[in-house]
Nucleic acid binder design. Sequence first.
DNA 1: ATATATGCAAAACTTTTGCATACAA
DNA 2: TTGTATGCAAAAGTTTTGCATATAT
Lengths: 153, 153
Amino acid sequence: MAPAPASPNVHEEIDRRLARVGQRWTRGRRAVVDVMAKSSAPVSVPELHTLVGPGIPLSTLYRIISDLLAANVLIKLEFAEGFARFELDDTLSKHHHHLVCTGCGTVIDLELADLETVLDGTTALIRKRTGFKVASHRLDFFGLCSSCAKAAG
Amino acid sequence: MAPAPASPNVHEEIDRRLARVGQRWTRGRRAVVDVMAKSSAPVSVPELHTLVGPGIPLSTLYRIISDLLAANVLIKLEFAEGFARFELDDTLSKHHHHLVCTGCGTVIDLELADLETVLDGTTALIRKRTGFKVASHRLDFFGLCSSCAKAAG
DNA sequence: ATATATGCAAAACTTTTGCATACAA
DNA sequence: TTGTATGCAAAAGTTTTGCATATAT
């Protein structure tokens, strides 16, 4: 259900992607990538700041995030919260969707391989109908997580 | 392909929703709802400011938006642009998805009735697998619109 | 008449940037 | 050594809020 944990292969692949755009493998980037690889849900910058400790200032975290986006190591997501969240690129972990709890705000990763087939098939249909050339998609489900559902009765 | 245009019925239904939470039907709200009803894609507040004219200050627009969200007249969307977009609630127009052009940033509304059946069926699966009680979903496709695809060769 | 909505100004919050210094290759 | 990354401080962009006034019902 959660994306694959960080493996040495992932680490090597990130290394390759940083090198490709002339980025160096620094303490700060290692810290950010480690947090992202361990997290089973997208992370915001303030959360990241807490998770990596106050050693790295927010401005640097934002710059690291921006660099890792440019290197195709991370992707950016927004859930109408007023700030952005980030997670490892699908090609580094596994393509997945999100369950967003409207009760407590928690975001849960979810793999739905069966649904992928349908969505991929839709790509051709959209192109024929509209001329739009789909490259990727994003699917979020909103509702109540099991504990919020219980609390609501 | 685009959502249904504003109809008298929609207007009445909005009226009802405002009344339900004790909100008044004012010049500013009428202006905002009119823009939303005419637009075939989600609108940002700065865009709204341009579209309704400078007569209504940004702070008031933000407050109107906030009120209309609370009255379930609008929904809030974010596309990783750094700001939010808004559109009429699905129950006032028609449930649809979005094509987001990564070339020019344009967002296009798209109805995919056939896909809805599959997605609705997925709800039960998710609940059984995870205990998460899905209430709604959101599906965005990213890629190049026909003109950007042409420009890219 | 009375509660709600607006306008203006100020502030809060997220994110970006300039510049001097520190660090990776 | 040389270009890239960091830290600090300041700024920019989006969104929120306090308070007095205006407006809808």
